[in-house]
Nucleic acid binder design. Structure first.
Length: 856
RNA sequence: AGGGCCUUAGCUCAGUUGGUAGAGCGCCACCCUUACAAGGUGGAUGUCAUCGGUUCGACCCCGGUAGGCCCUACCA
């Protein structure tokens, strides 16, 4: 089994470039594993995304002049479901454009019945265990949402504000105690003023009271070493109901909690004249009133971190309310353990640290939301005895007193609560389904680092607690997509790119390949259009190469049993056997890279093989044979074409499923469909790969070098492409002589030659020289230049070459004259350098001699 | 404040057991050669941010510095 669960996108959302990346990675893995014979499952789904969806629908309704609160819960939910019905499939159709090969039959929505059952079961389980509790606490409150949000949903941003210094008169004296605050309006909720016990300035005031200005409330001055004497005035106003630190102080010193806010973020009835004002408004009024009455001492600019709601962007207010919390202490311990002992492996590894750090400082998780869209909390309150009944199925009476007067909690669960169960709830849990037995734990989770805490960590905790096993073996964390300037893509910046638009313009395959080619492990990637264009060209190149091949495969019939009935191996050319050999290497590489999830390496290996090895060299080499009429070699080359194309499309298929399937179905050698054909591995491809040879590969490289050397001389000497020239190839060993002889006609053709003589010889008088060395083989490429060009250019070329080689000689001889290098470096390294120095030296000699002859 | 990441050719980036630096795009020159001008052939370009250490040898390992990015964090 090999299973990937798709991170469920927001049901009302659109596919953005981040999804395209995320999905492509998963699709590559799934297609690769599917072709490799695994029992694969890629399970799609979508998320109700409580806050986001409710916000969208509310906004829509407001535009129609309707209001959620007026409509009531039931009517509103009907609207949201209608919305879900209408837009829920939008992202799925986009996924199809991308080519996601998910199992649509297993598609799951987070509010589906099965998932809902799972949610309730987990809720009850945790409640019974005491790991899920209700408590009155200070929580992060989002006024626009009128709901609590979790710590993670708060984003802290450095914000410019002011530090206000306020004077509080000390009761019974003429003294005024000056405190510093960034939120002067909260003075209405002050419970005390706190100073450091050792602070000489204030020691005499501890135990006395101050009178809060205007409202004239009397509050004590207390001492606690929590206070930083250096900050502000060293005197701290304490507002336990509206600040997390003050909350702790309030608990510690048993202070009263004065709540000054309403759920919508306006000041409440306890604030008198300020009632109904929003915090920002109230602040202005209060500061002005304090100033008018002489209580404002100073305002100085001050930058500090302010928490904002990540959904609405509003300033988060610490707010006292009754909420449900998941106790994380016990859950986090095993969850931390499975990562530190590598039962779950993070890729790249660096995220392990981030994860463990977070697990160490994790706080209880506020899971209730004052929303309507989501899983309603399965808790019922009894009007008669005030007991709470928590139950998997809707109860008809109070568990404690049997009263029928029970009402369900109005709130819903945090979206991430159901997401945390996703790896097993989608597979059928709490039923002991076949899918669950087969696919849990899943193989790999692919996601961005922005939701490691939101989602990954919580899935691990819940998986371990409910299933007793990790939810996945590996977590592949990919980078974020940025625009070409490195900024995060976002709607508000207007720099986000619609993947479907890119698909329309360049094709899904090109987009997918671009993403994969740039997907170096763990790094953010800048999306660049030129790059996308380049890979579109690559797809085009493959298409054209196929057209060429198919044209030349007309009349070709593939041998019945693969390669058994094939012609004798002698019919294969050097190029044929080189290509086959390289195909084997490619298969190993791509499989290995995919195994290690090194997607860019895999993509680049394919790119380079297809474009350079196959198109640039092999197809050019194959033309004379294909255009010719010699049956044996022609058939052999056709076979190589057909077999290689077959392997190319299979290898490329996970990256570019559309074009490869299209090509596949036109090939003379193929099965039913590329998507279900086998992924090529060298182990299972021995019959074919056996026709390749490393020796032929070496020979081919020598021939390529020779042709390149000839082209180089032509180019550097500005010899027109149409102008045919004479070339003397002077091999310095028998092996080279044989190799060149065997491939003479290709050299003539691709070098645009008149005459090509292959024999050891002295250099000619006025000629260009290119000495080649590969391993033990050495060849001098000699091109007579007399009458062709002015010799100045060739002299320049030689001088440049000589310079380069001399530099190498200097470095090499420096090393070889270093006694310590000789003494310490491994023998083979020293030997290699010695050999290299010898070659380079003799090459330089030849080049110098050639230069001399030119200037004669 | 703590932690992480990054700095390699004009641009975007590869470079995993330390042995004389690579790709794509762009650039220059030549080419409409019957698969492909979204193409072909050839070419130029790097004190691998900086300083120091380890090593025979460092882009790679260790430490300092500068610049950029991100995360975590209650400083009123």
């Amino acid at each position: 089994p090999y299973c990937v669960i798709l991170p469920p996108p927001n049901v009302t959302g659109f596919l953005h470039m981040g999804h395209a990346l995320d999905h492509t990675i998963q699709d590559v893995l799934i297609r690769w594993k599917r072709m490799s014979g695994f029992n694969t499952l890629w399970l799609p789904g979508s998320d109700h995304a409580g806050i986001a969806t409710q916000a969208v629908v509310e906004k829509d309704l407001r535009q129609q002049g309707q209001d959620r609160l007026e409509m009531g819960r039931e009517a509103f939910l009907k609207e949201v479901w209608a919305w879900k019905q209408k837009y829920g499939d939008r992202i799925y159709s986009q996924m199809k454009r991308l080519g996601d090969s998910v199992d649509w039959e297993k598609e799951t929505f987070t509010l589906d019945e099965g998932v809902s059952r799972a949610v309730r079961k987990v809720f009850v389980h945790l409640y019974k265990k005491g790991w899920l509790y209700q408590g009155e606490r200070l929580v992060n409150w989002s006024p626009p949402l009128q709901s609590a949000i979790s710590d993670l949903e708060v984003v802290h941003k450095e914000t410019k504000g002011n530090l206000y210094k306020l004077a509080y008169p000390v009761e019974g004296t003429d003294e005024r105690l000056v405190i510093a605050t960034t939120r002067p309006e909260t003075y209405l909720g002050d419970s005390c003023v706190c100073v450091h016990p050792e602070d000489e300035r204030y020691k005499h005031l501890v135990g006395k009271n101050v009178i809060l200005p205007i409202i004239n409330r009397k509050i004590p001055i207390i001492a606690d070493d929590y206070v930083d004497r250096e900050f502000g005035t060293g005197a701290l106003k304490v507002t336990p109901a509206h600040d997390f630190n003050d909350y702790n102080l309030g608990k510690k010193h048993n202070l009263p909690f004065h709540n000054i806010l309403n759920v919508d973020g306006t000041l409440n009835e306890s604030t008198g004249a300020y009632q109904g004002l929003k915090v920002q408004e109230a602040r202005k009024h209060i500061v002005k009133d304090l100033e008018d009455q002489g209580f404002l001492v100073e305002i100085e600019p001050h930058t500090h971190a302010v928490g904002y709601c990540d959904r609405t962007g509003a300033v988060v207010e610490p707010f006292l309310s009754k909420q449900w919390f998941v106790k994380t202490k016990e859950l986090s311990t095993p969850a931390r353990h499975v990562v530190s002992n590598e039962t779950i492996q993070f890729i790249p590894e660096q995220w392990t640290k981030t994860y463990i750090h977070w697990m160490n400082i994790i706080e209880d998780w506020c899971v209730s939301r004052q929303l309507w869209w989501g899983h309603r909390i399965p808790a019922w309150y009894c009007e008669d005895c005030e007991a709470i009944t928590v139950s998997e199925s809707d109860p008809s009476s109070c568990e404690s007193c049997g009263s029928k007067k029970i009402t369900q909690d109005n709130d819903v669960l945090d979206t991430w609560f159901s997401s945390a169960l996703w790896p097993f709830s989608t597979l059928g849990w709490p039923e002991d389904s076949e899918a669950l037995k087969t696919f849990y734990p899943t193989s790999v989770l692919v996601t961005g680092h922005d939701i490691i805490f939101f989602w990954v960590a919580r899935m691990i905790m819940m998986g371990l607690e409910m299933k007793g096993d990790v939810p996945f073996r590996k977590v592949y964390i990919h980078g974020l997509i940025r625009d070409s300037e490195g900024r995060k893509m976002s709607k508000s910046l207007g720099n986000s790119i619609d993947p479907v638009e890119m698909i329309d313009q360049y094709g899904a395959d090109a987009l997918r390949f671009t993403l994969m080619a740039q997907m170096a492990t763990g790094k953010d990637l800048k999306f660049s259009l030129p790059r996308l264009e380049g890979y579109r060209n690559f797809m085009n190149k493959l298409w054209n190469a196929t057209r060429f091949s198919l044209t030349n495969l007309e009349g070709f019939t593939a041998p019945k049993n693969g390669v058994d009935s094939v012609l004798p191996a002698t019919e294969f050319t050097t190029a044929d056997r080189w290509l086959i050999f390289k195909t084997g290497k490619l298969q190993d590489e791509v499989n290995q890279y995919l195994e290690e999830m090194r997607f860019s390496d895999a993509a680049n290996a394919l790119y380079s093989f297809i474009w350079h090895d196959f198109c640039d060299w092999y197809l050019e080499f194959s033309k004379p044979t294909l255009y010719g009429s010699v049956a044996g070699p022609k058939h052999a080359t056709q076979l190589v074409l057909a077999q290689t194309l077959n392997r190319i499309v299979r290898l490329l298929h996970p990256f570019a499923p559309f074009i490869t399937e299209e090509i596949y179905r036109r090939l003379p050698i193929r099965g039913d469909a590329c998507v279900i054909d086998a992924y090529p591995t060298s182990q299972e491809d021995q019959a074919w790969l056996g026709l390749g040879s490393e020796i032929a590969a070496f020979e081919m490289e020598l021939v390529k070098e020779t042709i390149t050397a000839i082209r180089n001389i032509r180019g550097e000497n500005s010899i027109k492409p149409g102008q045919k020239i004479d070339v003397y190839l002077s091999p310095k060993d028998d092996a080279s002589q044989k190799i060149l002889g065997k491939n003479r006609s290709e050299i003539v053709r691709l070098g645009q030659l008149n005459l090509c003589e292959i024999a050891p010889r002295e250099s000619l008088k006025k000629c260009a020289l290119a000495p080649i060395r590969m391993g033990d083989s050495q060849v001098d490429v000699i091109v007579p230049l007399e009458g062709l060009v002015d010799l100045e250019k060739e002299m320049q070329r030689l001088k440049k070459l000589i310079e380069k080689q001399e530099k190498d000689i200097k470095i090499l001889s420096g090393k070889l004259n270093n006694q310590r290098f000789l003494a310490n470096a491994p023998e083979d390294v020293v030997e290699a350098d010695r050999a290299l120095l010898a070659t380079v030296s003799s090459r330089v000699e030849d080049l110098r001699a050639s230069l001399m002859r030119l200037s004669d």
